[in-house]
Computed example of a mutant assay.
Amino acid sequence: MKQLSIAALALLLSFQVQAADSFKVCWSIYVGWMPWGYGAEQKIVDKWADKYGIDIEVVQINDYIESINQYTTGEFDACTMTNMDALTIPAASGVDSTALIVGDFSNGNDGVVLRDKDSLADIKGQRINLVELSVSHYLLARALETVDMTEADVQVVNTADADLVALYNSGSVSAVTTWNPLLNAIIAEDDANLVFDSSQIPGEIMDLLVVKTDTLEANPELGKALVGAWYEIMGLMSGDDEAGIAAREAMGNASGTDRAGYEAQLAKTRMFYQPADALALVNSDELLDTMQKVAEFSFDHGLLGEGAPDAGFIGVEGPQGTYGNSANTQLRFDTTYMQMAADGKL
């Protein structure tokens, strides 16, 4: 009887270690993630946190990859990232993570640009400047498939995103793959031709809010507060009234552009302003097909870890099942909280 009591006490203490009332969320500047900064500034996140009796600190990290690294090493409970980076950084590091919110997918915000060439077929033999092993690299690989080429037909040149616009404008590079707002700055040049963009692979480059699975399971209030805040912000920023215009202007200014520039990026983003729109993607058969493509690219480029024997090494769970090794599931697309939002139960 004494042993049972000790075991029960240990279990209780374990739960108390996991349960918490204070959480940290990090985000970085990108069209689909600016709402987090705005929501924090306008106290919308605080309002929803208060509703569920918790505290949520929202922190902007200037370096995108560094934000994911900090999430992976335990400094944050949640972080904004793409589906590919969720697989190749935290999941590949053994950090079981859940895509709590699928906020949007790139619908033209990422693209391949050639100087003085108007056909993707002209890319053969060219040096392509991009951020290696990023979603730009993935986009390039998918673009090459459409013209029966592989990366062996081009030369990938790893280039910091901060240098891409200046390099193109200098005339020293002839081909670039990048994302907005850099993409819009480059294609504004007279000799720049956009020959492929993410609208041609719809739904493959997703922007997520990812939460540690064990944290979410122990603290469902966190999921409810974050999702509730998100869809309140979505309702606000999607409006054509003064409040919506002011929200988009603030987000544009915060991202280093203005309202017109931000709205130009939104036009190339399939924002899921309604939870039902996000649910349609996550519940579709295409979700795991997309993650298989992402996993295959990631495995081919050594991004799933040194011991990964194949592209299915890491299990990716969705409503329709699991792609890869279900015994090593490290990335999950959970519709629970988005469905609560759709049902008006938050």
Score class of each variant (00 low, 15 high):
residue 251 M to N: 05
residue 265 Q to C: 04
residue 258 D to K: 04
residue 254 A to W: 04
residue 212 K to R: 15
residue 230 W to N: 15
residue 265 Q to Y: 03
residue 214 D to F: 10
residue 214 D to M: 10
residue 271 M to H: 05
residue 207 D to S: 14
residue 267 A to I: 01
residue 263 E to S: 08
residue 223 G to K: 06
residue 199 S to K: 14
residue 261 G to W: 01
residue 268 K to I: 00
residue 256 G to I: 03
residue 211 V to Q: 11
residue 244 G to T: 06
residue 191 D to T: 11
residue 198 S to R: 09
residue 192 A to G: 09
residue 252 G to E: 07
residue 192 A to K: 07
residue 223 G to L: 09
residue 260 A to R: 02
residue 216 L to I: 12
residue 241 D to H: 07
residue 203 G to H: 08
residue 241 D to C: 10
residue 263 E to W: 01
residue 205 I to N: 06
residue 225 A to L: 10
residue 218 A to I: 10
residue 212 K to M: 11
residue 265 Q to I: 01
residue 237 M to P: 02
residue 211 V to E: 13
residue 198 S to M: 12
residue 198 S to G: 13
residue 214 D to T: 14
residue 276 A to N: 06
residue 269 T to I: 04
residue 232 E to D: 13
residue 200 Q to P: 06
residue 208 L to V: 02
residue 250 A to V: 04
residue 223 G to E: 09
residue 256 G to H: 04
residue 206 M to Y: 03
residue 195 V to A: 03
residue 224 K to P: 07
residue 236 L to S: 00
residue 209 L to M: 14
residue 206 M to R: 11
residue 206 M to G: 12
residue 274 Q to I: 02
residue 224 K to Q: 14
residue 196 F to A: 04
residue 270 R to I: 00
residue 270 R to F: 10
residue 274 Q to T: 02
residue 247 A to L: 06
residue 214 D to V: 11
residue 227 V to G: 03
residue 192 A to V: 08
residue 199 S to T: 07
residue 210 V to K: 07
residue 193 N to W: 08
residue 276 A to P: 00
residue 232 E to N: 09
residue 207 D to F: 15
residue 194 L to Q: 02
residue 206 M to K: 10
residue 216 L to E: 08
residue 193 N to Y: 14
residue 210 V to N: 11
residue 217 E to A: 15
residue 226 L to E: 11
residue 255 S to N: 03
residue 234 M to C: 15
residue 218 A to K: 12
residue 266 L to Y: 01
residue 241 D to V: 06
residue 208 L to H: 10
residue 244 G to R: 02
residue 271 M to L: 14
residue 278 A to I: 03
residue 243 A to Y: 02
residue 221 E to V: 07
residue 207 D to A: 12
residue 242 E to I: 08
residue 206 M to A: 12
residue 245 I to E: 01
residue 278 A to P: 03
residue 275 P to W: 01
residue 275 P to L: 05
residue 214 D to S: 15
residue 245 I to W: 00
residue 252 G to Y: 11
residue 265 Q to W: 05
residue 268 K to R: 01
residue 208 L to D: 04
residue 220 P to T: 13
residue 216 L to A: 11
residue 234 M to L: 09
residue 215 T to I: 15
residue 239 G to F: 10
residue 255 S to H: 04
residue 265 Q to T: 00
residue 223 G to I: 12
residue 216 L to F: 13
residue 264 A to W: 05
residue 231 Y to C: 06
residue 266 L to R: 03
residue 201 I to P: 04
residue 191 D to S: 15
residue 230 W to F: 15
residue 196 F to I: 05
residue 214 D to P: 06
residue 250 A to Y: 04
residue 194 L to K: 02
residue 204 E to Y: 14
residue 267 A to S: 14
residue 265 Q to V: 00
residue 217 E to P: 01
residue 248 R to S: 09
residue 210 V to M: 13
residue 268 K to H: 00
residue 199 S to F: 09
residue 273 Y to M: 07
residue 198 S to D: 08
residue 211 V to T: 13
residue 260 A to E: 12
residue 197 D to I: 05
residue 193 N to S: 14
residue 237 M to A: 03
residue 221 E to H: 08
residue 210 V to T: 14
residue 246 A to K: 07
residue 194 L to W: 03
residue 266 L to E: 01
residue 266 L to N: 00
residue 275 P to A: 05
residue 277 D to G: 02
residue 199 S to M: 10
residue 214 D to A: 13
residue 253 N to V: 15
residue 213 T to G: 07
residue 237 M to R: 13
residue 250 A to D: 02
residue 268 K to M: 00
residue 267 A to L: 01
residue 201 I to G: 01
residue 277 D to E: 15
residue 266 L to V: 11
residue 231 Y to P: 08
residue 258 D to P: 05
residue 230 W to L: 09
